[in-house]
Design a protein around this nucleic acid. Structure first.
Length: 414
DNA sequence: TCTGGGGTCCTAGGACCC
DNA sequence: TCTGGGGTCCTAGGACCC
């Protein structure tokens, strides 16, 4: 049996753990730069606030209904996520962490409904977060069961498909639009609708071979999964990342090379830190800079692919490469709004031949820098390209405290 | 005025090999 | 006049997920 456990309105629920007065009011959490709405409480959903809506378009609803607005607080959410995942790991035979707020579990033979309720109870009691649990024989069906649990309060947050007889199951999924399925986005949904497939039930009973011809291998697999035939196993061992991205929109536009180099250097430092943390090396990067496509007359994006001679995690080498690349693509007289670095061709350090002596020296240097940065703060030592406080830094006006990861910001009890 | 960030997989087409 | 078959690798673009 596979269970899909997911936290309801995850970011909003995290904020509520530390501020109980938010429980009864509409709350939203914003994306970086306070740009879009990316998490909503149920009350906020009822007001018609949509996922991904830009804040400025929802401003009047916000004021009218006194919606509480939070900037995103990723250190807090990441820490809460770790707590949830650790606890879930203890309640299952095997576990695949699928996203920051979602997890697949492999369950031993048991009373599934009872176990689902136990999961829900433990996470709420020990961590303070509400979850829903969907259970079935395949991942696709477990996701669907979770959807049913969310949408129908009478199930009390826990649905197990194998406890519902087939006729009732089919009645249920005849009412669910195919667009709600895991793996069906807006474009596939539109194409499916065009050939007369509107409900999950219709897709379940479609001919898999024929659908493969029309839509590719994943559609065939999805149909098998809907019929209880497993195509996607639980993957408890996380495979190595294939790319690492660090990109940001700026708090204010950049129109000079110095500020841009500052931003790029900072993004590169963060990307390389992620690289080193996973003990990976990179050989290739993409650097891009662009203007604001929403306001500019002409959308502009310049990018360059840069190759290094060998696989490396050496920050200074990669920095030289990045700055050289930036010099090549940077054009004056453009108001830049966003930039980013993508590290590619990642390999495990032990799978690559390296210059042993040079590598050891570099590792010592990098480890020392990492240690100093983590002891004090991440920008205590920077490269010469970086300023103390780049004016491009993102806007975050309503950020809650890092209640669980910073001694200075602990919750105070009076 | 104000519109996020970070990932994965599949497919088609081109270059190249024997 | 007639112009094969089988393969790999790379890349860009499209689709999806949270």
């Amino acid at each position: 049996m596979i269970a899909l456990v997911d936290v309801n309105n995850f970011y909003v629920s995290c904020e509520r753990v530390f501020n109980r007065s938010l429980e009864k009011t509409p709350v939203v959490v914003l994306s970086n730069n306070d740009g879009c709405i990316i998490s909503r409480s149920n009350q906020a959903k009822l007001l018609g606030i949509k996922m991904g809506m830009p804040l400025f378009k929802a401003q009047s609803i916000m004021r009218q209904h006194k919606v509480m607005i939070y900037s995103s607080n990723y250190p807090l959410y990441a820490d809460m996520s770790n707590r949830v995942m650790q606890l879930l790991g203890k309640l299952a035979e095997d576990q695949e962490v699928y996203s920051i707020d979602e997890c697949f579990l492999k369950l031993k033979r048991t009373n599934y409904l009872q176990h689902g309720r136990l999961i829900r109870f433990k996470i709420l009691k020990d961590i303070g977060l509400p979850v829903c649990v969907g259970m079935a024989e395949t991942k696709t069906l477990a996701k669907l069961a979770n959807y049913v649990a969310k949408k129908n309060p009478e199930f009390d947050g826990v649905v197990c498909f194998s406890e519902i007889d087939l006729a009732a199951q089919n009645r249920l999924i005849k009412k669910i639009p195919v667009s709600e399925l895991w793996g069906i986005g807006v474009r596939l949904a539109k194409r499916l609708n065009e050939i007369g497939i509107d409900s999950v039930y219709q897709l379940k009973t479609a001919n898999p071979k024929w659908m493969k011809q029309l839509f590719g291998i994943n559609m065939e697999r999805m149909i098998y999964e809907l019929n209880g035939i497993q195509c996607y196993p639980i993957e408890s061992l996380k495979s190595d990342q294939k790319q690492i991205i660090c990109s940001r929109s700026f708090g204010q536009t950049i129109d000079n090379f110095t500020d841009m180099a500052d931003a790029i250097a900072t993004f590169l430092q963060r990307a390389v830190a992620k690289l080193r943390k996973q003990e990976l090396l990179t050989k290739e990067m993409i650097l891009f800079i662009r203007n604001n496509p929403f306001t500019a007359k002409q959308p502009i994006q310049y990018s360059i692919r840069l190759k290094h001679a060998i696989h490396t995690d050496h920050h200074e080498q990669l920095m030289r490469l990045a700055i050289a690349g930036l010099t090549q693509i940077y054009q004056h007289n453009t108001a830049y709004h966003k930039a980013g670095i993508i590290l590619l061709d990642l390999k495990r350090a032990q799978h690559v031949n390296q210059d042993y002596a040079a590598q050891t020296m570099r590792a010592n240097l990098s480890n020392t820098l990492d240690a100093i940065r983590s002891k004090y703060r991440h920008n205590i030592i920077t490269s010469g390209w970086q300023s103390k406080d780049g004016k491009w830094q993102m806007k975050q006006l309503n950020k809650s405290q890092r209640f669980t990861t910073s001694w200075q910001e602990l919750l105070e009890a009076c």
